[in-house]
């Protein structure tokens, strides 16, 4: 099962993501913002990163850019959690190297279906 890094400044959403993924048998590491995520990503490589876009200190887009700069994360799937209206953000995310996105609001099922697409 995969090791997943979940990044979101909202504790409730992070809990939900983390709980859902753990129930599905994955190992989950949580971070509350980009800076924390980057630190965790460096110390323990993840198979998949799921990150919010709007966060204090370092946002999701910058996090993607930083992660893609690390050799271990060159091809690692990185999914952004966005809201339905932020088409521009999706493109910005893609340009930074994000693999895909998951549109908020989502339910646990949608989350699991989506990560199946990147964990093969």
């Amino acid at each position: 099962m995969a090791k997943i890094l979940a990044v979101d400044d909202s504790a409730s959403l992070r809990q939900m993501v983390s709980f859902t993924l753990k129930e599905a048998g994955h190992e989950v590491v949580e971070a509350a913002d980009g800076v924390e995520a980057l630190e965790l990503a460096r110390s323990a490589p993840a198979d998949l990163v799921i990150s919010d876009v709007n966060m204090p200190r370092m946002d999701g887009i910058s996090l993607v850019r930083e992660l893609r700069g690390l050799p271990e994360y060159k091809f690692t799937p990185i999914l952004l959690l966005t809201t339905e209206t932020s088409d521009a953000k999706k493109q910005e995310g893609k340009a930074a190297g994000a693999t895909g996105w998951l549109v908020k609001p989502f339910d646990p099922e949608a989350l699991l279906t989506t990560i199946k697409r990147v964990l093969g």
């Binding site: 400044d9 909202s10 409730s12 959403l13 939900m16 919010d52 709007n54 966060m55 204090p56 959690l81 809201t83 908020k104 609001p105 989502f106 339910d107």
Partner: peptide, 19 residues
């Protein structure tokens, strides 16, 4: 800061059944 707070509420609300 204000934007992020609003954004968080909006983003999570639907997920937790407060569409």
């Amino acid at each position: 800061t204000i934007f992020r707070a609003a954004h968080s509420i909006k983003g999570s609300a639907g997920t937790f059944g407060f569409g």
